[in-house]
Design a protein around this nucleic acid. Structure first.
Lengths: 343, 343
DNA sequence: AAAAATTGCACAACCGGTTGTGTGTTGTTG
DNA sequence: CAACAACACACAACCGGTTGTGCAATTTTT
């Protein structure tokens, strides 16, 4: 097994008796190079197995055609769909995507932000870690004119691009739907809502909907989970079902939690949706699989990814310095399935 | 908003009246630099907000401390757990991970392999796209001494590192378990098993187990899905349940498919596990959520990721040219839950 | 105290594309 | 046919760390 050296434009230049600058320009169809030379160069490049060295180009131009994605984890359906959207759009413009997971840890997020900066990504798309309270580690991007887009879990007080849904109105819609199904004692399962984030907004929508329909807000019906896991969902659900009377509706801030509520209810002989109507959030794959199917709020993950990537690419092309930082709102819808449908 | 230039070692050198080489060495605790200078340099670097430019280092050294991961998708639980494992191990040795998705397309896989090579990744971990039949696009790595590890979906005839489970014996174990539960008419749901891949191996294990227990292999009980999706699973399941008599056991080559079988059976009034015992594969999160819980074969995704990353890192450190290419086998276990447990 | 070894740092080439500038050749215009 | 524009390509600096080599200063050895 011979150890081939990487083929460079120098090799091509030598073979064709041309300057490296000519090779470089020919490969990108520069107008100052004749068609004949362009063809000759491209042919030789292909034959010799030339693959451009991204590092060299990036170093010189201080840009890498790479979008850095910094998210809590790739395992959540919402986030992997987000990635999908980012990738689809990135690929169209010939950008690479580098993905890093913070695992919801602030310390890791700080590290990976540094790593992305160190890798001179052209832009950054981020959904904040659960733990994150301050955003100083993102200033290195803003300060160096690297476009930064926050998605879904966005900071409140940071002046940059954001792509979000209206969590308040989504929470309102979900709760209103349960009220329309005749629920009077509606519980809310949430996670980390004490911090000013998207869960907090959904909870606000929930409470406002209750108020608008003259229903009381009952503290013991609002359970704030430690983590968005099935196990914690089961615990919280059991807590609710130990109450007397039990709630007749649950709005869960995630489908995994909603699924745990449905399954726990079934185990305890509580009929869904007759005795208990349940609606989740996100439209995760599981919502279509469990029995009964889960009503939910659609969360346009892929669209959000596309939108975020478009913002990055657009702002790289035309770097209008003082452009107004914008917030992009995407739509959500109530998806009524079996778990909340009382006809 | 002032446009800070990136801080470089030249800036530090100028400020401290030292050579750039001294800065570079001081930052990595080179023995030829005095402790006093090292401290001084590190302090200045921190104050000035120095972040090394990975591209420059990579260009010079022709190595990037980056592991490229090329997989069909990040949305499958098995694959996102694989990524998790890779990341955990990579991070310990200060490697970055760049993830690319082939979406099971051969053309995309070829492109992304090129892109990884172009980015001069230090090593590559790959699980092949469904469509892929030849592996010529991976030779650029082998030829340039870039360690390459295939995981799970590995090529048969390519001499490089592999991390796999024994799919044959896993299929055998799963089927044997159903036989031990008293099943006599065991169906098998698989996907793309006509190609010499892991599904094929599982199927082989299934057939061998039947043979060993003197059960007939019935062609109509083996259904080969087009894709590993819930929808296709429902279709295949209905096909099985239209038979007379219906099967009394199903070994599905994936939990999504097994879940579809369970749910479809319930809808048609078939009792699981009494009339129909079901066992899946992978131990996906869904297997613990659906009712009844799904028996399954554990698939040590995270361990496989860790093992793959370790192989890369080990081989980067000590590049013994002619080392024997190895296959790493990891263990699987039959996980008996409700869907196949007839006591 | 002279010779040898060690320490601490500077110099400069290097990695491989990119791009502003310069030069010679061909084509166009009055 | 002179004057000028357009064309096709070459030259060389540049991006920012890395590393082999060289040299002076200091310490150790004999």
């Amino acid at each position: 097994m011979e150890e081939n050296k990487h083929v460079t434009i120098y090799d091509i230049a030598e073979k064709l008796n041309l300057a490296t600058s000519t090779i470089s320009r020919a490969l990108k169809d520069h107008h100052s190079i004749s068609d004949k030379t362009i063809k000759k160069v491209k042919k030789a490049a292909k034959e010799m197995g030339f693959v451009p060295n991204t590092l060299a180009a990036g170093l010189r131009g201080n840009k890498t055609k790479t979008i850095g994605v910094l998210i809590p984890t790739v395992t959540q359906p919402f986030l992997s769909s987000l990635i999908s959207g980012i990738e689809i759009t990135a690929q169209k413009s010939d950008y690479s995507v580098i993905i890093m997971q913070s695992h919801d840890s602030y310390a890791e997020e700080v590290n990976m932000a540094k790593s992305l900066y160190s890798n001179r990504v052209s832009g950054v798309i981020c959904s904040l870690a659960m733990e994150t309270r301050d955003t100083a580690h993102f200033e290195q991007f803003s300060n160096n004119n690297i476009p930064l887009v926050f998605v879904d879990r966005v900071p409140k007080d940071y002046n940059t691009f954001r792509v979000v849904i209206d969590n308040y109105s989504a929470g309102y819609k979900a709760t209103k739907h349960l009220i329309e199904q005749g629920c009077l004692r509606i519980a809310h399962l949430t996670a980390g809502a004490e911090f000013g984030n998207l869960y907090n907004e959904r909870k606000r929508g929930y409470m406002e909907a209750l108020r608008d329909h003259n229903l009381p807000i009952i503290e013991e019906l609002i359970v704030d989970l430690k983590s968005v896991t099935y196990g914690d969902g089961v615990k919280a659900s059991n807590k609710l079902f130990d109450l007397k009377p039990i709630p007749d509706g649950i709005f869960a801030s995630g489908d995994i939690i909603a699924a745990s509520a449905v399954q726990t209810a079934k185990k305890r002989g509580i009929k869904v949706p007759e005795e208990l109507a349940v609606i989740g959030f996100n439209n995760d794959p599981i919502s279509e699989i469990i029995d009964p199917n889960l009503s939910t709020i659609t969360h346009p993950a892929e669209k959000m990814g596309k939108a975020a990537a478009e913002i990055i690419i657009k702002n790289l092309k035309s770097l209008k310095e003082s452009e107004v930082q914008e917030i992009t709102f995407l739509n959500t819808e109530v998806l009524i399935r079996e778990s909340s449908d009382r006809k």
